[in-house]
Computed example of a mutant assay.
Amino acid sequence: MIKLSVNVNKVAVLRNSRGGSEPDPVNAARVALAAGCHGITVHPRPDQRHIRVDDVSRIAQVLDGAEYNIEGNPFAPARGDYPGLLAIVRATRPAQVTLVPDGDGQITSDHGFDVERDVERLTPLVAAFRELDCRVSVFVDAGTARLDALAAIGVNRIEIYTGPFAHAHALGDDAAAVAACVATAQAARAVGLGVNAGHDLCQHNLARLASAIPWLDEVSIGHALFGEALYAGLDATVRAYLGILRTAAAPD
């Protein structure tokens, strides 16, 4: 079965919009885990617009064996209370770190690494994360075909950026976008890399992607999941996503 990692960033956004401590992303993580999700994802940014550095360590304490996935830009330098992604990972030792080329000016992650351009800079950082016994996943665009360079420097998985797929699916014409995702997933598998996927996945489009790439290892979902949870409740929404993934994994 494809694993579900629940991204709790949006809970922190709501908390930070008011100040104080509520709603608490730690409690959201507890509820999602109790509902059966396989892990929790956070993306601490240097500007700490949502998940803060102290949230990362507090969430780590409630995982009870579930996987922790920490996302971030490995090139972003330390500043203020943000010590840098490597320092956060060194202190927390998550199961997985996902490297994403985002900047402060982006509302959300909106593109993957350019593998040929960025692989040299990524090389020492991948080695540093691997030394901490973290699985290393690298965010790439759908359609990226040359992934052997990532495998060569010790990357374990890729995460396919699924924003364009979600947009095309909403418009009712997703064949080309699905084909691009499948091509990249196949290229990853061919060089021994695992495959994750994330961004703008929701209950309306997840089955389509999961059926097209049944060997996905993990999907990371946050924005849509918490939007849906406003109406159905977090426990019920997590269970609905798990049901979609379970059905996608079932033999015909």
Rank of each mutant, 00 (worst) to 15 (best):
G19A: 13
A128D: 13
D174P: 11
G39Y: 04
C181I: 02
A248N: 04
D102Q: 05
C134P: 08
D148E: 15
R18C: 03
A87R: 12
I51E: 09
D54Q: 14
L85E: 03
V53M: 05
T144F: 11
L225Q: 02
R52A: 12
N7F: 02
D174V: 05
W215Y: 15
D141M: 08
T162N: 04
V238Y: 13
N156M: 01
Y68H: 14
T123D: 08
S109N: 04
A87N: 13
P124N: 08
F75V: 00
A127S: 14
A35D: 09
D81A: 14
Q106M: 14
E228F: 01
F113G: 04
L201H: 05
R208L: 13
R79T: 12
L150Q: 06
G198D: 11
H43E: 07
A60F: 05
I213A: 09
F139S: 00
V100I: 14
V26E: 09
Y241I: 04
D252L: 15
G143I: 08
V62H: 09
L4F: 08
V26W: 10
P23S: 08
E228H: 11
E116H: 12
V191M: 00
A175I: 08
P46W: 05
A128C: 00
R135S: 10
H199S: 10
E22D: 13
V119E: 02
L147K: 08
D54I: 10
V136D: 07
A240I: 00
R246P: 00
H199Q: 12
G20P: 11
H50S: 10
C37F: 01
V62C: 10
W215Q: 14
T184F: 09
L230H: 08
C202E: 12
Q106K: 01
F129N: 02
A28W: 08
H223C: 08
R30I: 15
R49W: 11
N156A: 09
L242E: 04
H204W: 11
R208Q: 12
I51M: 12
V53E: 03
V238C: 03
A187W: 06
R246Y: 07
S211A: 12
G36Q: 06
L85R: 09
A60Y: 08
L216I: 04
S57H: 15
P44E: 03
A207I: 10
I51L: 05
D133A: 13
A212H: 06
I59E: 01
N73A: 06
G105L: 06
V238L: 04
Q48M: 15
G194F: 03
I153P: 04
V138P: 07
D54C: 06
D148R: 06
L14W: 14
S21F: 14
A187S: 15
F75T: 00
Q186N: 14
G39L: 00
A87E: 15
A91R: 08
V182T: 13
A87T: 10
G222M: 06
P101D: 02
P124C: 08
P251W: 07
A66Y: 02
S137R: 00
R246D: 15
L245R: 03
